[in-house]
Write a protein that binds this DNA or RNA. Structure first.
Lengths: 211, 211
DNA sequence: CGAGTAACTTACTTTGAGTAAGTTCGCCAG
DNA sequence: CTGGCGAACTTACTCAAAGTAAGTTACTCG
């Protein structure tokens, strides 16, 4: 007979205030979703890992989707912060692109558990969660839009649609490369991918801005 | 009391041979998955729509994932065919790009039910289905790789990694734009998106080829 | 100390994937 | 025409996991 089932303290387990418990739950959820994916994880698993009962999680997060979305939002926010920092640190736009890409790939290399969660987000694509995931994603599109706009000569009137198209393209390409890299046995180095992508985009961005 | 529940003939419903029944099931699955998404669809729903019992579907398709994957593969194949045709019809590479993009967006505009299925594929990202979905997707990467290679001067040695990076970028950007367009209330015209994307990529591709 | 409330649980319903074990139809050999 | 055989198909279940109703315990502030 085992006393401890998996990885957790069965110590006195006192009550905690809501905020602390929420963080605890979120941390466990992030880990387990990361290990087993959305479908492979049950709410009971997470409850057991935290050492708490399932209804408590429902009280705090509403539903399995809600909990997953909370993980997703947190991870995306971290990723955004990392990338934004790298982008801001660069001096010119061309370098911002490169730095942003490298930061993005680096983040996934550093947080392999996050990978699974970020990838699985398609899970929520249908249904009422769709808007929420879009919102989470859109922060990137905004970041890129801002970069693109900065690159435009101030004299030129901005075509909002065009900027958005560019931003989505760049964001989509980067995301896909990240996924591909994470699934490929011996992926090319971050720097090489980032450089190739920048080389691909930079000429076009320059030309479009000048038009 | 109603006699017919939803949309189907309650007529004599005789036996059919396996191939015909499989097609019938696939068609219903495509429609219902398209309407309600993967999560929102139950096997009982599909069975009821076809007018057949659930175990029959399991006998033919193995699992819910298997059935979904079959839909996905069929739709992707159609999409690939449409795009490939448009690409082949164009005379130079620049125009191939544009034509391919337009065809892609057009396909989704013409098959709004397909949308949901194609988008939801992330669903299967985790677990043993991941490879199958990758395989389905890779046909596009191959098509694009072929285009990129065609564009290289024959004298230049090909960097396989580089070609693959480019192909994934383009495929990712296109896919994302398609999703975005389908979710945006008044999306820009197919042609505008395609043109902008081509303008973005073309310069870079030219430059990279020349290097 | 004794309410009041926030943290938490037990024990349940329900839904939906997947299956074991049979039943019926249609076809063809005799 | 008929019996039997295999493929098409069903009934009736199991089991896992999402979600919930209703109650119980522990902390905290007057």
């Amino acid at each position: 007979m085992q006393v401890t089932s998996t990885t957790q303290q069965q110590a006195p387990k006192r009550r905690r205030d809501r905020a602390a418990r929420e963080r605890e739950i979120l941390a466990a959820a992030e880990r387990i979703f990361g290990e087993r994916g959305y479908q492979g994880t049950s709410m009971d698993d997470i409850a057991a890992a935290v050492g708490v009962s399932k209804p408590l999680i429902y009280q705090y997060y509403g539903s399995k989707d809600g909990l997953f979305l909370a993980c997703l939002a947190r991870l995306r926010a971290q990723l955004l912060e990392t990338v934004a920092e790298a982008v801001m640190a660069a001096t010119d736009i061309e370098d911002s692109l490169y730095a942003g890409f490298v930061a993005w790939f680096q983040f996934l290399d550093d947080h392999p558990q996050a990978w699974s969660v970020l990838i699985d987000e398609g899970m929520l694509a249908a249904g009422p969660m769709a808007d929420a995931t879009d919102e989470v994603r859109n922060s990137f599109v905004e970041l890129i839009s801002a970069m693109v706009r900065l690159n435009l000569p101030p004299t030129r009137p901005v075509d909002a649609d065009e900027v958005e198209i560019l931003a989505h393209s760049i964001s989509g390409a980067t995301e896909r490369l990240a996924i591909w890299r994470s699934r490929t046995p011996n992926p090319p180095a971050r720097e090489k991918v980032a450089q190739t992508l920048r080389d691909l985009l930079w000429q076009g961005l320059k030309t479009l801005s000048a038009t």
